[in-house]
Design a protein around this nucleic acid. Structure first.
Length: 422
RNA sequence: GGAGAGGUGGCCGAGUGGUUGAAGGCGCCGGUCUCGAAAACCGGUAUACCGCUUGCGGUAUCCAGGGUUCGAAUCCCUGCCUCUCCGCCA
């Protein structure tokens, strides 16, 4: 959620930012009209309340003097009705304003390039070389099947399509990667959380999944819960409705969780193997930082994620997302993509974003400046470090042997306990 | 799941319809005293919104929502949460 004051004072900047994202800026004017209406109703109601309070005290005084207050009381009865009506009106206007503000997207940072589609994203870094393999590399789904380390069919039987079952060394590899990622995050100063895997509507609203992306989450029928689509939701909400001390910033948290996503509308495209599934594992980094440092913190987070890919010796590149490819809540975002030699394309394995105060305002998450004074909203960031399935896919493809076995990267040996699969 | 108790300011804790934004204490800030500190004493010490605006005025906030009343922290209803006991359970 943006600051209503920003809309009031610099509507042109907000409209331009929304337009850069390819969205319709009409909501700005709608919000401003509601804001104006809100203040008028508020002032009217408050004037009446002021009167009511004064008269009520007079009634008390009259009664203590044993005077008759009947006529004043009769008059106040009417005023009370009017106040009730105005309060109702105010409530409606405020609800409407709030609903409108929740639909206005965050605006892009100045360093974000203009653009409308993923083709306009800028490659800002590239590491390593595409691996050279002197035989025809198999896509990971063939390796998974021949090695017997993931079973899609049985996952479908148990739950449904897109719920793979990891088996034996496959399960072990998954667990090894999770532990490796968590250990690395700890070394980089992130405190590990093991959060709830279901969240309530307030949490999902805080990080921006609601109301905008409701259809992407699994809802639990009969209970007001959603399955987490990413650890971002429970972890960022950890400090919701709190005032942190400035000395607590930056607060750096990390968490492993499974992620549950309906992926509605993505059928048929890029869904083979582990490319896109309904449940997957991910380690997420989350930071709450001082507003003055959030873009430096974004780079720090990006380098944490990059380190992991380097240690796994995976060829990757970094994309700076253009304005039109930014999500609803994001001001600036990098995507990390690894090279899939078996599919001959890039696979997104990490997304690292700065939300500035957009989430913090929804979350009511502030800090008290060390110099004293009023609490200010923190800036929040998050980044995957990393999402597992496509890492597994790229890893298997890149490290396959002509015999169909897979060499496990050195850095994982102490976690897997084996060096080769197959 | 059943029975009971309770949710008041940064914290503890008074307050059962009328200057109560809320006693008292602790903490915190400023001052007096002191070479300095402690103690003691004096003063100050919530948040949000609205309006004029270096300051002031108004409104709201005693878990949340609704109700009764001229007037609610205080009475009534609903919800949420916490605690205790019983049951069930990894």
């Amino acid at each position: 959620m943006l600051d209503i004051k920003l809309l009031r004072e610099q509507p042109a900047i907000v409209r331009e930012g929304i337009t850069r994202k390819g969205e319709n800026p009409a909501l700005v004017d709608e919000a401003l009209a509601l804001d104006e209406q809100r203040r008028q109703t508020l002032q009217h109601g408050e004037a009446l309340k002021s009167r009511k309070n004064t008269v009520s005290q007079q009634v008390a005084a009259m009664k203590s003097r044993k005077e008759d207050a009947a006529s004043v009381i009769a008059e106040m009865r009417l005023v009370a009705d009017e106040i009730k009506a105005l309060d109702g009106e105010l409530r409606r206007v405020e609800d409407q304003l709030h609903a409108t503000m929740l639909q206005i997207p965050n605006i892009p940072h100045a360093s974000v390039p203009d653009g409308r589609t993923p083709a306009d994203n800028k490659e800002v870094a590239r590491w390593g070389e595409p691996p050279v393999i002197d035989f025809a590399p198999k896509p990971h789904w063939e390796l998974l099947e021949s090695l017997g380390i993931v079973d899609f069919a049985r996952g479908t039987k148990i739950a449904g399509a897109g719920f793979p079952v990891f088996i034996g060394k496959g399960a072990r590899l998954e667990r090894a990667l999770i532990n490796f990622f968590l250990d690395q995050a700890a070394e980089n100063g992130y405190t590990e959380l093991l959060p709830p895997l279901m969240v309530n509507a307030a949490s999902a609203t805080g990080t921006g999944q609601l109301p905008d992306k409701e259809g992407q989450m699994y809802a639990v029928p009969g209970d007001e819960f959603y399955l987490v689509p990413t650890a971002e939701v429970p972890v960022t909400n950890f400090h919701r409705d709190e005032i942190l001390l400035e000395s607590q910033l930056p607060t750096k948290l990390c968490a492993y969780t499974p992620c549950f996503r309906r992926e509605a509308g993505s059928y048929g495209k890029d869904v083979r193997g582990l490319n896109r599934v309904h449940q997957f594992d991910k380690v997420e980094l989350v930071k709450m930082v001082h507003p003055g440092t959030s873009y430096d913190e974004l780079e720090e987070m990006r380098s944490c994620a990059e380190q992991l890919l380097r240690k796994l010796e995976l060829h990757y590149h970094v994309l700076l997302m253009c304005s039109g490819d930014l999500g609803f809540t994001q001001s600036k975002k990098y995507d990390l993509e690894v090279w899939s030699i078996g599919q001959q394309k890039w696979l997104e394995v990490s997304s690292i974003s700065n939300f500035e105060s957009f989430q913090a305002r929804r979350l009511n998450l502030r800090f008290r400046p060390a110099t004293g004074g009023k609490p200010e909203f923190v800036h929040t960031l998050n980044g995957s470090a990393l999402a597992l399935p496509r890492i597994v896919a790229a890893l298997l493809e890149q490290n396959q042997t002509p015999e169909g076995k897979v060499i496990v990267p050195q850095v994982l040996h102490r976690y897997t306990g084996f060096e080769i699969i197959g």
